[in-house]
């Protein structure tokens, strides 16, 4: 009996150790894994290419659109005040939908509901620009997914997906980003996978891109079927990643290799 108990205990411990989150004190932004010249590019707004999208987003913020002929600014006024810290709390529950939506989806919900305009396609210049402009207002703010108890089951689903092995290579996110973030994959730093800088400019993409784009690329990398843009699974994964990065400062628009 006692032996059986020990076996159960050690089995529990083994599961726990394998899926342990990175301790708070050891958490590192992808920024800290980068070469000094790439960091310098992020640090200087005059050479950070992500700022081109932010500037576009600022113009779009003031541009009237849709049947109601309203601009974002007509309801939200100056984004520097009204959007300060907002991105640090996303994804967040949309009351009407009863599920979390990410920042891109929130912008599109505003467009369809309040502006009565067509939603902007994922990864379009306009949606990335507006998202970057909104996210930039939270630069330096600590990531803090809301304490809305409605979020909890979606965080749990996102975590499940993070742990789930998938694809022809049969790997889960956790296998690299919890267990091997101090190592190198084909010469590149693996990183801890904290989404601190989205939307961000990836040198590999030669463009700004969303967190969903990054997640889909990782899924294709392990030869899994990537979820479609806007799929609830991707939003749940985004939500889990944000809760995992709780307290880390937002860097949008960041630069990554």
């Amino acid at each position: 009996m006692r032996l059986a108990g020990l076996i159960v205990l050690s089995a529990l411990f083994a599961v726990d150790a394998a899926s342990a989150e990175i301790p708070q004190a050891e958490r590192r932004s992808g920024y800290s894994f980068m070469a000094p010249d790439t960091r310098a590019m992020q640090d200087d707004d005059t050479i950070n290419p992500g700022m081109l999208w932010v500037l576009d987003g600022e113009k779009l913020w003031a541009r009237k659109s849709g049947v109601t002929n309203k601009a974002c600014a007509d309801c939200h006024q100056d984004a520097r005040a009204s959007m300060k810290g907002v991105a640090a709390h996303y994804p967040a529950i949309d009351k009407a939908l009863g599920r979390p939506v990410d920042l891109e989806q929130r912008i599109n919900l505003c467009r369809t509901t309040h502006q009565q305009a067509t939603p902007l396609p994922y990864e379009s210049r306009e949606l990335l620009a507006l998202t970057a402009f909104v996210a930039q207002q939270s630069r330096g703010a600590a990531i803090e997914p809301g304490n809305d108890p409605q979020l909890a089951p979606f965080v749990a689903k996102g975590r499940e997906l993070f742990m789930q092995r998938q694809g022809q290579l049969n790997l889960g996110c956790t296998n690299c980003h919890d267990e091997n973030w101090d190592k190198r994959l084909a010469g590149s730093a693996i990183t801890q996978g904290h989404p601190t800088g989205y939307p961000l400019y990836r040198l590999e993409w030669q463009s700004l891109g969303s967190l969903q784009r990054r997640l889909r690329a990782c899924m294709t990398g392990i030869r899994a079927q990537a979820y479609d843009y806007g799929a609830p699974e991707l939003v749940e994964l985004e939500l889990y990643l944000m809760s995992r990065a709780r307290g880390m400062p937002l860097e949008a628009p960041a630069i990554r290799p």
């Binding site: 998938q166 022809q168 049969n170 790997l171 990537a226």
Partner: peptide, 20 residues
């Protein structure tokens, strides 16, 4: 618990992309 993929196995895998 190994992270080494099984190079000659097609069963017991989850959401393998259509190409593979």
């Amino acid at each position: 618990a190994t992270i080494m993929p099984s190079y000659y196995r097609v069963d017991g895998l989850h959401r393998v992309g259509p190409a593979w």
